[in-house]
Design a protein around this nucleic acid. Structure first.
Lengths: 212, 212, 212, 212
DNA sequence: TAGTAAGCGAGACGGTACGTCATGTCTTACT
DNA sequence: AGTAAGACATGACGTACCGTCTCGCTTACTA
């Protein structure tokens, strides 16, 4: 079975699937409470009771619809994440790569959605299931988009045939994630430019070799 | 009644360790308990009470010497981390870089110390102070070592004068951290080789450009 | 190797009993600390650590010389209690009884020593050993003094031969203790006078009968 | 919208006890645990954790409904105390007084409820609030009952008009409390008889005088 | 048009762990 | 030997949240 899964949106009240009448109001105010509290007090002090109170909702309602704090965060995150993913496509590899790298850096380091993402990534270090969900629901797609400009360029012949978009993307984006998640250094435009230039200089000169 | 009762006292060693005040015995058994429990039950279920019990130590003793669970982890980590840091130096850049990258990958993904490190990195996402400590006490040094083979090669003239060791290191190691911490992909020797080759291909051909 | 065991002080130093040289200074400052703290913060918040700190003494020193907090209180109490016990003796029963009753009431309700005594009596409810000590070291004597005016009067022929001083004392002093320890009513001179008058009226009229 | 909101009231009693919110089951098992533990291990070793465990209840539940160990004891005591209070009324003062004095002595010295009462009285020495509660919730009533036979006798003309029941009661019961709480002597029937006889001998002969 | 049952806010419940406090014992270094 | 200092194992404290569980209410769908 496969459903369109999108909110029908008009007035309506389709009562999709098996649920009878879940309160959309409650759902939304919970997710907003999560967003708000995460920014205001941080993940460490985020509690189900706090969320329930802030949302004006009973704990039971939260437990009815989400199985854990992390799943709640996943939901709150999905709501906001998609805006940041899609790369521009100007037809000029260098520009597209720079622009998307800049966008990813901005998302990771400075956006509210990025804050939630970092929290989730942190939890994923302790929780394999969450890690798996996070990957399948977000990272796979994210990675696809990071590869996109390179694959387009390959198609256009802007890169040598043997260039490996996966590997090239890793060399551009890996260091960005590292700075945000590990070293805490700010990701400057100059750093991004250098990464992109170095990566492209290389492939133009020699082609890239296959990765794992 | 009077008994000899005196330590024959060959050499010193009257009381184990350096106990002038603090019990070295307690300190060590706590850190070992942390290591053991972290591996056995994971960070999420690690409790101070559990550590105290396992170590045969009172909670108060833990709180007397460590201000938080994270600081405890930092200590437990420092104890083990240094083994993994120092790169080989054969005088051949490609080999040294591959070897050290392999070592870092092994540390991050498969060692006990790496498990503690990942847990700390996760906590550091929620706690700026911890992040700062982690950086100053470990990452700075770690990064220095990652740059070392490149700097040596630069010195030897194996790299162009304008090569930027920092940036090159970022392109080799960034993707490794990414795989371990974010995407969960295994870091294969082939992947490492590809990263190193691509990075060096570039610099030999064109020199690298300065980053931020 | 241990042998010489030099006595710094040759002859002398023997003095009291078996102890070598207990610090009188410490003993006194502990007892004073107990008095002070009991008045300032009350029994409920009196701690050995607090006493040690206030007295400038180590906990060990306290534990060396007193086996429990209550024993400490007993000591502190003995120091002050004796002042209150001895009745006047004017040769007029009614006056002597009134005066001593007044004195006992004052001691119980308003003196510092009385505060310690009430605290001890309270602890004695939970601790049979303390109760026993309190009785043998204080109450027996206290009771003797309460009987004294009556026995003197009996001797003088001021009371009938068959009067029971013990019982009469109980009827005068029992209600006073009751008011202080149980009902919390203040013990007024009028109440005392009434007690004494009623008790004596009785014995003059009829003689008293033997109690248990 | 507006609802009458009144309790239908008739049948009611749906779930055991009055549970609208609070669990009557928990309340009772806590109070029973207190009773049991107090008798078994004594006040000094009575802990909230012990009570919770014995009652099969969480600590939080205890703290939710009782603000302190002493308040808990008050509750446990109220439950049992009333049985002991009401004096017999045969119409013969001497008999009624003896019987009630005997009953009070039995309660104070030998009953379980009396053990709780003595513990409370002890705590009341250190805690003015508890003392106040104990007086208003128990002692006032207790004292009324102690006066009752005397007042009835006064009404019947069995006592002189100017007799003061309060004072007479004090002389009968004061010494009983003193023996139980202070001197530890057992309260024998002979002692009680002597107290009553002496007290009545007096009033019959001379009338009593007003106290404070 | 009433009855029924799901979702809901509220919050009590049995638990676990927290971080703190005081206990009584111990060791060390000093006098 | 007695002492001040203070680390130590122990155990209870009172608090914060956990996840589960009624309860009584409101509402939308059925019968």
């Amino acid at each position: 079975m496969e459903s369109t899964e999108n909110e029908p949106a008009p007035a309506a009240r389709r009562h999709h699937g098996n649920r009878h009448r879940r309160s959309e109001e409650a759902r939304i105010s919970v997710l907003q409470a999560v967003d708000g509290l995460l920014v205001e007090i941080g993940y460490a002090r985020l509690t189900i009771e706090g969320i329930a109170q802030r949302a004006g909702v009973s704990k039971q309602t939260i437990y009815r619809w989400w199985s854990s704090k992390d799943e709640l965060l996943m939901d709150a995150f999905s709501k906001d994440a998609s805006d940041w993913m899609i790369p521009s496509d100007t037809g000029r590899l260098r520009d597209d790569l720079r622009a998307h790298a800049q966008r990813v850096a901005e998302f990771m380091a400075n956006s509210d959605a990025g804050a939630v993402f970092r929290a989730l990534l942190a939890q994923a270090q302790h929780d394999g299931d969450l890690a798996e969900r996070l990957r399948s629901e977000f990272l796979v797609e994210q990675k696809t988009y990071e590869r996109l400009p390179l694959e387009a360029a390959l198609q256009r012949g802007e890169l040598p045939q043997n260039a490996d978009p996966d590997l090239l993307a890793a060399q551009v984006f890996g260091p960005i994630y590292y700075r945000v998640l590990v070293s805490g250094e700010t990701v400057t435009p100059a750093f991004i430019d250098a990464l992109v230039d170095l990566t492209l200089a290389n492939t133009v000169a020699s082609g890239s070799r296959p990765g794992s």
